[in-house]
Amino acid sequence: MLEDARVGDSIAVNGVCLTATTFGDGIFTADVMAETLDKTNLKELRPGSRVNLERALRLGDRLGGHMVSGHVDGIGTIVGLEKRDIATLVMVQAPDQVMKYIINKGSIAIDGTSLTVVSFQRDRFQVSLIPHTAHATVLGSKKVGETVNLEADLLGKYIERLLQGRGEQRENSQLNLQFLAANGFL
């Protein structure tokens, strides 16, 4: 995974985009700011902790998941694990700033792993792990009560901002109900 990596490359650790500062013997280091530790679960890692690692997407590569940037939107807590047939259902309690982007069959990144939302309630959502995902990612070894980094789909955040901007334009526009009434249109 690190064969052609260079200083300055972005490498996501449990879904948190970090900049590599040194390499050697199959390891790398990265600087981590207080802000990153405050907003993610990286502060809970200890030497030997298992983590998800992912290199940045290159233009022209296939996109096998959804659009995420490695900028965590919030920390969730695993509140339920259930085996169903070959799948493991994972229930995650999440803060409002993440839940507002959750939709059925929508996408969510959990510790950097792109997953599909199976269902959701006011303050929690559920995903289903196939055996490969459970084995190949840290999510498969997490227990109830453990925290996870959450990043909502980038598209939802852009749509939200676009709609906010349209609302601001209407408020600041000369064309409003008062203008229409004053000029005989209403």
Rank of each mutant, 00 (worst) to 15 (best):
T77Y: 10
V79C: 12
N104V: 11
Q93I: 01
I108A: 02
N104G: 13
I102P: 00
V92Q: 07
I102M: 10
K105L: 08
S107T: 04
S69A: 06
H66E: 00
I75S: 10
I86H: 10
G74Y: 06
E82I: 03
T88Q: 10
K100N: 13
Y101Q: 01
V72R: 03
T88D: 11
A94T: 10
G70I: 09
D96A: 15
G106V: 03
D73P: 01
I103W: 10
A109K: 01
E82A: 15
V98W: 00
H71T: 05
V79N: 04
V90A: 02
K105R: 14
V92L: 04
S107W: 06
L89T: 09
M67C: 08
Y101S: 10
G80W: 10
V72F: 03
I108V: 13
L89C: 08
G80S: 13
G64A: 11
A94E: 02
V79H: 07
D96V: 14
Q97A: 06
K105I: 00
V68K: 00
A109M: 05
G65M: 05
G106N: 07
M99Y: 07
G76D: 08
L89A: 05
G70P: 04
D96T: 14
K105P: 06
E82G: 06
D73Q: 02
G74I: 03
E82Q: 15
G76S: 08
G80Q: 09
G80C: 14
T88A: 07
I103Y: 05
G74R: 00
N104R: 12
H66R: 11
G80V: 06
K105S: 06
A94G: 06
V90F: 04
G64H: 11
M67P: 12
G70R: 01
G80T: 04
V79A: 00
S107Y: 08
V68E: 00
N104C: 12
G65D: 03
A109P: 07
H71N: 07
M67D: 00
V68P: 01
K100Q: 09
L81E: 01
G106T: 03
V90N: 03
G65E: 06
I78C: 12
A109Y: 04
Q93T: 12
K83E: 15
N104M: 07
I103S: 09
G80R: 11
G106A: 11
A109F: 11
V98I: 02
P95G: 09
H66M: 07
V79F: 13
